[in-house]
Structures are given as C-alpha cells and as structure tokens.
C-alpha cells in the first residue's frame, strides 16, 4: 500500500474512528506520508470543523493527539438519545491532590501531604487506579520515594492538548513552592509574604 491520493480524507477517516487521541506520527506511519503533510491536513480539518459553527462535531487536540468529539452545546441531546455512560467526576479530595500533582509534578507523596495538611494515600491510590496519575520516577533521597506525574488520560479528561496548556494565572507551575522545610526561609518567604 502506498499513501492515499486523498490524504486529508484518509486522515479524517483515521481520526473519525478513533476512541483515543491519535497522533501525527501514527497517522503518518500508517498513510506512509510525511508528518508535515499530515499536520497540514489536520490543520485544514481543524479549520473546517472548528471554525464552522454549523457543525455538530469538533476536532480536538488532546494529549498530543487528535480526536473528534461532539460539541458542548449538543451534549443535552446526546444524553437524551444515547444515554452515554456517565462520565465520572473526580471527587473533591482527589481533585485537590490531582491539582497539586498537575501543577507541581514530579512530586512525592510527602510533599503533597505537606501542602494539603492531610494524608494523600487514598487519593493517590484512586488517581493511579483511574490512570490519571502515574509513577514517573524516584526521588534520589533516603527511601527513594515515588515521584508522581499526570498521564495522557489526565489531559484527555480535562480536554488539554498538553500539560503546558494548564491554565495557570497564578504561576503555580515551575515555581519554588512553599519550601516548608527550608532551613533559611529568606527570599522565598518575602515573596510569599508580599503576595
């Protein structure tokens, strides 16, 4: 098989049937085409679908891949006709833990517990089970504690194309943190105190 004459149509078909985001590399490989060509096709499709508000479906960029979904405004009717499996919301306790991980990853359980002021074991267990977080490594410290980070399923759940797209008006990502156990809290404390 060689690459199809109607490349854009082929890309559309591949993404159409997917239930998990498909990425450009995968598509390019299957269609034996150049990744740039695929990107181009995706961009055109995105324009066609997302900029035409008469459409019922949209092309989302999720977790580094592409996936079709129905538009938010039609959710009500979809629920009426299809009675889709209810999407499960994350509980408040888990959500707080998840937020800490999302914004502060990679992070250990002890650090999470310091921030929340309560134990996080149960929430971590739930989140791992739901595939929203995963072990991303070990901290080279006594006891080599597990470092947690978010997964692609996390991005999909929140409709994000990648972790960089997390809304962060407060600049919580990539910042020093509360440094709870810092011995000389000079600079850090002044910044926190002044905010």
């Amino acid at each position: 098989m060689s690459s199809p004459a109607n490349l854009k149509g082929a890309v559309e078909a591949l993404v159409f049937l997917a239930s998990e985001p498909v990425n450009i590399e995968e598509i390019a490989q299957v269609l034996e085409a150049d990744q740039r060509e695929i990107s181009q096709a995706i961009e055109e499709l995105k324009q066609e679908y997302n900029e035409d508000n008469r459409r019922g479906i949209q092309l989302d960029e999720l977790a580094g891949g592409y996936l079709f979904s129905t538009r938010l405004e039609f959710g009500e009717y979809i629920r009426r006709l299809h009675k889709p499996k209810l999407k499960q919301r994350i509980t408040q306790a888990s959500l707080e833990t998840l937020a800490i991980i999302a914004y502060r990853q990679p992070i250990t359980r002890a650090e999470i517990e310091d921030i929340r002021g309560v134990k996080a074991e149960k929430a971590l267990f739930t989140l791992v089970k739901k595939d929203l977080i995963k072990e991303v490594g070990r901290l080279e410290k006594t006891g080599t504690p597990i470092l947690y980070g978010t997964t692609d399923a996390f991005l999909k759940h929140f409709g994000l194309s990648d972790i960089e797209h997390l809304p962060d008006p407060d600049g919580l990502r990539g910042e020093g943190g509360p440094d709870l156990h810092k011995e000389s809290p000079g600079e850090e404390e002044m910044r926190e105190g002044g905010s």
Binding site: F68, L98, A102, F158
Partner: peptide, 18 residues
C-alpha cells in the same frame, strides 16, 4: 487551581467522544 481544573472538567463533561 483546583477550581480551575474543576471548570475544565465540567466543560469536558458535556463533550462526547467516540
């Protein structure tokens, strides 16, 4: 930010994928 995530989740809840 937890609230922000909650909003994102809420928005995504009404959107259905295959």
């Amino acid at each position: 930010v937890t609230e922000l995530l909650k909003d994102l989740e809420e928005k995504r809840m009404g959107v259905y994928e295959r």
